[in-house]
Simulated assay, not measured.
Amino acid sequence: MAILEIGPLADWAEATAELLAVCVALFLPYYTDYQKKKHQRRNLKIVLQELVQAALEQRPDSVKTLDIFIKVSFLGNRDSANDELLMVGSHMVSLFEDTALDRQATQQEVVRLMAQLGLSVTEPVVAD
Rank of each mutant, 00 (worst) to 15 (best):
T16F: 08
T16H: 04
A17F: 08
A17D: 05
A25D: 04
L26V: 14
L26E: 07
L26I: 14
L26R: 07
F27Q: 04
L28T: 10
P29C: 09
P29D: 08
Y30C: 13
Y31G: 07
T32M: 13
D33G: 11
Y34W: 14
K37W: 11
K38C: 12
H39Y: 13
R42H: 12
R42E: 15
N43K: 02
K45S: 13
I46L: 08
I46S: 08
I46C: 06
V47G: 01
V47T: 08
V47D: 06
E50Q: 11
V52E: 03
Q53M: 12
Q53I: 13
Q53R: 08
A55S: 11
E57F: 15
R59M: 13
R59K: 15
P60I: 14
D61W: 14
S62F: 08
T65V: 13
L66R: 00
L66M: 06
D67F: 11
I68A: 15
I70H: 06
S73K: 03
F74G: 07
L75I: 13
D79Q: 08
D79V: 06
E84T: 06
L86A: 01
V88C: 02
M92L: 07
V93Y: 02
S94M: 14
L95E: 02
L95M: 08
E97Y: 06
T99R: 11
A100D: 10
R103S: 10
R103D: 05
Q104H: 13
Q104I: 03
A105R: 09
Q107G: 04
Q108F: 08
V110M: 03
V111Q: 05
R112N: 08
L113Y: 07
M114P: 01
G118Q: 04
L119N: 02
S120H: 00
S120N: 02
V121Q: 00
T122H: 06
T122G: 05
V125F: 10
V125A: 09
